[in-house]
Write a protein that binds this DNA or RNA. Structure first.
Length: 940
DNA sequence: CTCTCCCTT
């Protein structure tokens, strides 16, 4: 077997090295290898013997090419086989592989996009080999595996093969892989083909067969080194195509719609007395309902709707034989997933809802778009499988020709977070260099990485700023273990922390299935009433929990499956989806508990919902859907993160009563942008959970005397939403350097501390003294300025910005000496002491000493010197001429008095400056007032 | 101011 071969090669290499040290062990080791080799060889021989005899049905077109296919498979590593449905390729190719001698050293793996198909194909191949399913032919899908010890062929979903690559990196279990329905280009198919492109270089012995509907071959061939393409004819009966375009002018005016036209088409067929079964393709559920209602009124026959959300029972009706003409009105489900036998006419509106992901707004859209030519051809092929058919297209031949040949591969229109996460877990390198057949757009990759970063699965690698290099966080590996959307996996990780794993497992599973609630048109009110009893007014997630609770309750009481089906029917719940929900729930718990199978059959316990658990649950949900938060604008309208305007989905329990903040697990664009699966949240949680994504802005930093610290106003923004409008915060942690600057300038320099600090009083009085000199001398620049003092403090203080830290510092140092400045610290330029002497601090009037207040503020009251004279001394002060005590001011005053003399008097005098100087220097004014003394002097 | 195609680990 291939896996043994790989093992033996590795072991021999290892033995080679070991033989240098312990030759005695080598012999023993080689014996063991010999044994394994023998076992392996015997297995291959047994497998060869177990290949049953089989034939190929001669009526199938592919049988004619049997020899060409077998020869090509033997010769080439990769073969592309194309053929339309009915060619028999899916069942016959695995058999031809056996005929080519494959399937012996490893299994022939056949992948299918859908589970049901995988199971039914497995049993068909088995029966053609004359066996039961699970002998030579195994199958493996999620939750279900049927196999023997030595299967030759294994049919599985493509997702399953992908999951196997985790355990079996080189797919050593297989010697052949057949990728069926490759033209569907689902995410899984593209991922597998990319993976195989690299693997085939390493595994020369591995054969790959890609099968696809006719048109899509060149791309596959090119992707695999121009692999040979074999075409197999498929069409058994001809289909006539009629174009019946809708008049665009009338459609524009609203006079007709594709629903009208489809109904008219059926009427016309019936007028032509054509009463074989009809299949109509329409894009939406609503169109289907409208069409069905109108057809029932106007036409004969059995009118049946068909879409995925329809209950299983109603879906089955399309397969049951009817005595009258069947008119099936279907969505895309009838294009690939369900094949209805005996259709003679196809009416194709040429439209479908096609998923589109917009990475810029992280919004999923489901717009109605024209389908591709290959899709239209597939629809056409739904008739004429057992007889010739007619396909009526509600568009023109030209319009058909203008359409794109293929539907855009899913990988080009999907959210890539999940793909990227898996690639990281598998160590597949950079997404941008992975050999996808169609490389996703860089913008899409960046968005996927951004989502993973939002979830905390990745952090930017700072050592490599240039390219898209990221570091994985610890949670990546845990997250990738869950077969779930990364956001859902993230919730589970948070639930471990919060201690609500069971509850989140229920919700995570619910988010992974389609809504289990059924709403049949004819019983819409009953269904609404049944669902209403589950509805939680605060959270659609808790609504799921309440459904679950009722379910587990009933599971206790009801033992039989039949009763349980009835329970589902009574509550308008889909039995199939409820089962899927339970299975995924168990799968999640299994992964968490490390595959403990004992837990598997544990009955789900009822969950009590109280405020505590509800808070925990919603914090977990937020951890996964943080970028889906929204803030209420009005009524049902919200502004969501990343600037999206959304409306609560009318089906939500929060509709018309949503709180100021919500989180939604889905924001999608249909007729509007809707937030689906929503819950009220507390905005206080947002900052804690979104810490790394919050943007903080600060302004108005200032010293706050009462708090004794520097504070600032803060605003918190998360994904563009303001989660905290304005709050006061200590500025110290935010910007310690800036905070210290403000503390020094506003608190210490200005002395605004609001309490007694001895060093501060000391410093302030020294500074005051220095500033008095300036006032006396009537010039600036003697005292240092505020900035200089601030710098003095800054030099002597560490990074602190509050009183408590300052007081602690002083206490630790034992004194505040280090903050006491000296007198000279405040002086920028020393004043002339003699000059300074001319400005006494006080003057004497009689026996009284009066204080002089100096002020240097020209133009303002109080400029110059002010002496407050008690009322009793006023006349004495006036007669004594107090100006003589202030010699520096006297001269200036005299000068201006002289200048104010009449012009003719002034002209007779010597220069005024000279007079003022001489007058001031003489003590001639002792006993007189100044004007009197001056006039005496002049006459003298 | 009221509703979404189809798959899958």
């Amino acid at each position: 077997m291939i896996a043994d071969c790989d093992y033996l090669l590795q072991a021999l290499k290892a033995a080679d090295i070991r033989s240098l040290q312990r030759p005695d062990l080598v012999h023993h080791h080689l014996l063991k290898l010999q044994k394994r080799f023998d076992v392996s060889r015997r297995r291959v021989q047994n497998r060869k013997r177990s290949v049953p005899a089989f034939g190929l049905p001669p009526e199938l077109p592919i049988t004619a090419k049997r020899q060409l296919i077998i020869d090509t498979i033997r010769k080439d590593q990769v073969v592309v086989i194309t053929g339309e449905t009915g060619s028999g390729k899916t069942t016959q190719i695995p058999k031809m592989c056996l005929a080519a001698g494959l399937g012996l050293r490893g299994i022939i793996g056949l992948t299918q996009p859908r589970r049901i198909a995988a199971v039914s194909i497995a049993s068909r191949i088995a029966s053609e080999l004359g066996q039961l399913c699970g002998e030579s032919v195994a199958y493996k899908i999620r939750f279900e595996e049927k196999t023997s010890a030595e299967p030759l062929i294994k049919v599985m979903t493509d997702g399953m093969l992908l999951a196997e690559t985790v355990q079996d990196r080189d797919l050593l279990a297989y010697d052949t892989i057949i990728v069926d329905e490759a033209h569907e280009r689902s995410l899984n198919i593209d991922f597998i083909l990319g993976y195989l492109r690299t693997l085939l270089l390493k595994r020369n012995d591995l054969k790959l067969i890609i099968t696809s509907a006719t048109i899509d071959t060149a791309k596959f061939s090119q992707a695999f080194d121009n692999a040979p393409v074999i075409e197999v004819s498929g069409r058994m009966y001809p289909v006539e195509v009629r174009y019946r375009p809708i008049d665009p002018v009338r459609e524009e005016k609203g006079e007709t719609t594709y629903v009208d036209e489809a109904v008219a088409c059926v009427e016309q067929l019936q007028q032509e007395r054509r009463f074989e079964d009809i299949l109509i393709f329409l894009p939406t559920e609503q169109d289907i309902r409208e069409t069905c209602e109108r057809l029932a009124k106007r036409c004969s026959g059995l009118v049946l709707p068909l879409f995925a959300r329809l209950s299983a029972g109603n879906q089955r009706l399309v397969f049951s034989p009817a005595s009258q003409q069947k008119i099936i009105v279907a969505t895309n489900i009838a294009e690939t997933s369900l094949t209805i036998p005996g259709i003679k006419y196809v009416i194709d509106a040429g439209l479908a809802r096609i998923l589109e992901y917009n990475p810029r707004s992280q919004t999923t859209g489901l717009p109605i778009k024209s389908v591709s030519r290959s899709s239209a051809e597939q629809r056409k092929g739904r008739c004429g499988r057992v007889q010739d058919g007619i396909c009526i297209r509600l568009y023109s031949r030209e319009e058909f020709a203008d359409r794109p040949l293929y539907t855009t591969p899913e990988i080009l229109r999907s959210n890539l977070a999940g793909v990227i996460l898996r690639m990281l877990a598998l160590n597949l390198g950079l997404v941008s260099s992975f050999p996808f057949i169609d490389r996703p757009h860089p913008k899409n990759i960046r968005d996927g990485i951004e989502i993973l970063r939002d979830l905390g699965a990745l952090t930017r690698d700072e050592s490599d700023a240039e390219t898209e290099h990221y570091k994985l966080t610890e949670i990546v590996r845990t997250m990738s273990q869950f077969p779930l959307d990364p956001r859902v996996s993230r919730m589970i990780i948070e639930a471990k922390q919060e201690g609500c794993l069971n509850e989140i497992a229920v919700i995570a599973a619910a988010l992974s299935i389609q809504d289990p609630r059924e709403r049949p048109y004819d019983k819409i009110d009953q269904a609404a009433a049944a669902h209403a009893q589950f509805q939680h007014p605060e959270s659609d997630f808790l609504t799921y929990l309440q459904i679950w609770n009722r379910y587990s309750d009933s599971l206790e009481k009801m033992q039989s499956q039949g009763k349980w089906r009835k329970f589902c029917r009574d509550h308008f719940l889909s039995y199939r989806r409820m089962t899927e929900w339970r299975d995924i729930y168990h799968q999640i718990l299994e992964i968490i508990s490390g595959k403990n199978s004992a837990q598997k059959h544990r009955k789900p316990a009822k969950i009590e919902i109280d405020q505590t658990i509800s808070d925990k649950i919603h914090r977990c949900i937020l951890s996964g859907y943080l970028s889906n938060i929204a803030q209420k604008k009005e009524k049902n309208f919200y502004t969501a993160a990343k600037s999206r305007e959304v409306m609560l989905y009318p089906g939500s329990g929060l509709f018309n009563r949503g709180g100021p903040w919500i989180v939604a697990s889905e924001i999608s664009l249909t007729s509007r942008v809707f937030a689906r699966n929503a819950a009220n949240i507390k905005s206080e949680w947002l900052e804690e959970l979104g810490r790394d994504h919050c943007r903080y802005t600060h302004w108005a930093a200032h010293w706050e005397k009462n708090r004794g610290q520097v504070v600032a106003l803060e605003k918190v923004i998360l994904f563009g939403l303001t989660i905290v409008e304005q709050r006061t915060v200590a500025y110290e942690q935010i910007n310690p350097e800036e905070a210290k600057k403000i503390f020094v300038r506003e608190a210490l320099v200005m002395g605004e501390v609001g309490r007694k600090l001895p060093f501060l009083e000391h410093n302030l009085s020294l500074w005051e003294k220095t500033k008095t000199m300036e006032d006396k001398l009537r010039k600036r620049g003697i005292a240092v300025d505020e900035e200089a003092i601030a710098q003095l403090y800054e030099q002597r203080l560490p990074l602190i910005s509050d009183i408590r830290s300052l007081q602690k510092l002083i206490k630790d140092k034992g004194s505040d000496d280090f903050l006491r400045f000296r007198e000279e610290d405040f002086i920028a330029h020393d004043p002339d002491p003699r000059e300074l002497q001319q400005f006494p601090d006080q003057i004497k009037i009689g026996n009284a000493a009066l204080a002089c207040h100096y002020r240097f503020e020209p133009g303002l009251a109080g400029d110059g010197v002010t002496v407050s004279v008690p009322l009793g001394l006023v006349s004495k002060a006036a007669s004594e001429n107090i100006e003589r005590h202030l010699p520096s001011l006297l001269q200036e005053k005299v000068f201006y008095m002289l200048k104010s003399l009449p012009k003719n008097a002034r002209q007779k005098l010597p220069p005024l400056v000279q007079i003022a100087k001489i007058f001031s220097e003489r003590a001639t004014i002792a006993d007189n007032s100044l004007p009197l003394a001056l006039s005496k002097f002049l006459f003298h």
